[in-house]
Amino acid sequence: MFTPLNNPVWHALGEAHAPFRLELQDNVRFYHPDYCRFGAFSAPADLTDSINRYAAQSGAPFFLVGENPSVTALQGQLEEVVCDQMVLHDPIKATINYPIQALNGGYEDDLYALVNLVQPGYFCPRTPEMGAYSGIFVEGKLVAAAGERMKLASFTEISAVVTHPEFTGRGFAKQLVAHCADKIYGEGKTPFLHVTSNNESAIGLYKKLGFRFRRKMSFWKVTYNRTNFSSKE
């Protein structure tokens, strides 16, 4: 049942998120960089050409999610970020104590600013179009948010779980994750997420909410210097 989560980007771009796909060769799929700078491959092969072509289009650092990619003469740096993939097997029983507001359709700039303040490098201007995002406001200021990123046929990833540093410790993240999970379960799908393996506080929270560790997942960060690419690319 959970096999697609072994290669979530590949399956998302072949299923619910196919409209966001850039397919550079048969065994490589990338999200369009306006939405998400993630890519994946289905079988071992030299990915250098596809990676270089995507880098020429996206510019900013991006990630290959899954197994160690095979590359030769890479025109950039490759760095492994190890995450825990966690799955929620049962709905969260949590009381919602704070008003939660939908952020799609008017609050995208506030969401983009908050996520990149807390978790820089993953969130793009059009990421909110990938799924539903919700937030908590205090005195008109967005101070916490969470939403959906990768969508597969039977699974939806909870992502961008952030709280402004001045408003931590109030239970906002717990409320928002429970809210997102309830929505996903209501659609007949299973929530999952990725959290860096050294983020003990976040992992502890997710465990308390009922998420269970499934496997380690590598996010291979590729960083390029734009001067490596000619105007032809």
Rank of each mutant, 00 (worst) to 15 (best):
E166K: 09
T95R: 14
N228S: 10
N228A: 10
Q25T: 14
F137A: 07
T72P: 05
Y133E: 00
Q57V: 11
L47P: 04
N228P: 02
K189A: 11
P191S: 07
F38I: 02
M150W: 00
N198F: 15
K216V: 07
Q175K: 04
L103G: 02
L64Y: 05
G59I: 08
L205S: 03
V65K: 02
A16L: 14
F137T: 06
V118P: 02
T227N: 12
T95E: 15
A160T: 03
F2L: 15
G140D: 07
G131D: 01
L5S: 05
S230L: 08
T48H: 07
M217I: 05
K93G: 15
A73C: 12
E166I: 04
F20Q: 09
H194V: 00
A18T: 15
Q175T: 09
N27V: 14
M130L: 14
Y98W: 10
M1F: 14
P69T: 04
V82F: 09
N52I: 05
S50V: 05
R226T: 13
T190A: 11
D110N: 08
L22I: 12
D34G: 14
N228E: 13
F30Q: 06
S231G: 05
G171M: 09
A173Y: 01
P165Y: 11
L193Q: 00
H194A: 00
E108I: 07
D49E: 13
N199T: 11
N104F: 04
P69M: 08
K174H: 04
A153K: 15
F41R: 09
E80A: 14
H164Q: 06
L103F: 06
G186S: 11
N116I: 09
E233P: 00
P99C: 03
L47R: 09
A94Q: 13
E200R: 15
V65M: 04
A94Y: 06
D109M: 11
V28Y: 07
I136F: 03
Y133N: 00
A55I: 07
G169N: 08
E108P: 05
Q57H: 13
A56R: 06
N52P: 02
F38M: 03
Q101S: 09
Q119F: 12
R214Q: 10
L78D: 01
I136A: 01
G210M: 08
E15D: 15
R53N: 03
Y107E: 13
F155L: 11
V162F: 00
G147S: 08
S154P: 13
R126Q: 15
L205T: 06
E80R: 13
Y185V: 07
L114Y: 02
R215E: 06
F2R: 15
P69Y: 03
S134R: 04
Y133S: 00
A178P: 01
V82I: 13
R37W: 04
H179D: 03
K216Q: 12
R170Q: 12
S58D: 06
N199W: 11
R21E: 15
D182Y: 07
E200W: 12
V65R: 03
L142A: 03
M130C: 08
P61M: 11
E148F: 00
F137R: 05
T227S: 14
N104E: 07
A73N: 15
P120F: 12
D84V: 01
N7Y: 09
A113D: 14
G76K: 01
N68V: 10
E129N: 12
Y112W: 14
R37P: 02
F38P: 00
Q85C: 03
R226W: 08
Y98E: 09
E67S: 10
P191C: 05
L209H: 06
T127K: 03
P61W: 07
F38H: 03
